[in-house]
């Protein structure tokens, strides 16, 4: 087979008003989920008006994982005769304004959901999505993506937008992205100066999206954890843990789930759904009959950090399964969920 000639990706320059026109056009044609204000903070929500899109956000309350693994997700329908039928989400959508660290998390979830047994429900949603990544314009209070190598991203997105000065540089990263940018045919190509300023934004973001400083390279975390099972930090921190699971829910790389059968009102059948679950919750490792294999709070607490820094990385070719979004730090009521603080503490003598 002849190799297709590699085409240079389309890169255009977009003013704010051109952006609004583009987004308005997209909304007319298809489902668009975009970042919007939600009270004092931000959230991914269905976009009905282009002017509601807030690409200047700092971080969303819940990561975009909810679009690919909804908090309550139908898997199957069944009837009382044990006829089970798969349910798949089939509506295409554009996901607008994902930050690079969240895109890294999505790419990690692509790997865990395709590893060994491929999860058709996850990929039905995933393949229906066109993802527009937007470089961070405002650092959130607890972001540390700069330490995790996730402040910027060069592949995996469909479109990448970067604000440089008073406009955006918009680059296609996939055939889907090229198709989405069809609507920008008449916009100017990005000039050298804009591209140069974009490089500067990337450099700055890698440097400044660091509200907490990790005193090691992320690649050193697995080995550090391997020798830290008995470190006192697990008991110290867990002593103040409410086992509420907030850190699990807001984490872009927490994907554990529970599965439940919900019976329909007529009792003739129902739906099997999966729900977000969390390894910090007391009953997570319960088996029928009541035995709890991870009853100790410190064991659950340690398990979560070991998943992020050791167990899941083993599935990801070594990549750390923490992208530095800082949501857990913000969400934790006891203020014990700062991964940077924990990893740094492990460097210290016990």
């Amino acid at each position: 087979m002849r190799k297709k000639p590699t085409r240079k990706p389309t890169i255009r320059k977009l003013t704010d008003s051109a952006l609004r026109t583009w987004v308005a056009g997209l909304i007319r044609r298809q489902r668009v989920i975009g970042v919007q204000a939600d009270g004092e903070r931000f959230a991914f929500k269905p976009l009905t008006r282009a002017e509601d899109l807030r690409l200047d956000y700092d971080v969303t309350k819940i990561p975009p994982k909810k679009l690919f693994q909804p908090a309550a997700e139908p898997l199957l329908e069944y009837d009382q005769a044990a006829n089970y039928r798969s349910i798949f989400e089939t509506e295409p959508f554009v996901l607008f304004g994902v930050h690079p660290y969240d895109m890294v998390a999505i790419l990690q979830m692509d790997q865990v959901f395709s590893e060994k047994h491929c999860d058709a429900h996850y990929f039905a949603r995933r393949q229906n999505a066109t993802i527009v990544v937007c470089d961070v314009q405002k650092a959130s209070p607890n972001v540390f993506a700069g330490c995790m190598g996730t402040a910027t991203i060069r592949k995996g997105y469909d479109v990448l937008m970067t604000r440089v000065g008073g406009h955006y540089v918009v680059e296609a990263g996939s055939p889907k992205g090229e198709a989405l940018m069809e609507g920008l045919k008449n916009r100017p190509e990005a000039d050298e100066a804009s591209l140069h300023r974009r490089e500067q934004v990337w450099e700055d973001n890698a440097k400044f999206l660091v509200r907490h400083t990790l005193r090691m390279k992320p690649a050193e975390i697995p080995a550090l954890l391997q020798r830290s099972e008995d470190h006192p930090v697990w008991e110290e921190k867990a002593a103040r843990c409410f086992s509420c699971g907030s850190c699990n829910l807001v984490c872009p790389t927490c994907y554990c789930f529970d599965v439940r059968d919900d019976v329909k009102w007529d009792l003739q059948g129902g739906m099997r759904r999966r729900y977000w679950d969390g390894c910090m919750l007391l009953n997570f490792a319960n088996v029928a009959g009541g035995h709890n294999f991870r009853k100790n709070r410190a064991d659950r607490y340690r398990h979560r950090y070991y998943r992020k820094g050791l167990y899941v990385p083993a599935k990801l070719g070594g990549e750390i399964s923490c992208v530095g979004c800082g949501r857990c730090i913000t969400a934790c009521v006891s203020k014990i969920a700062n991964p940077v603080e924990i990893y740094n503490r492990l460097l210290e003598e016990r």
Partner: peptide
């Protein structure tokens, strides 16, 4: 996938 049966890794 679901995580419930994990023994360490």
């Amino acid at each position: 996938k679901c995580g419930h049966c994990q023994i360490n890794g």
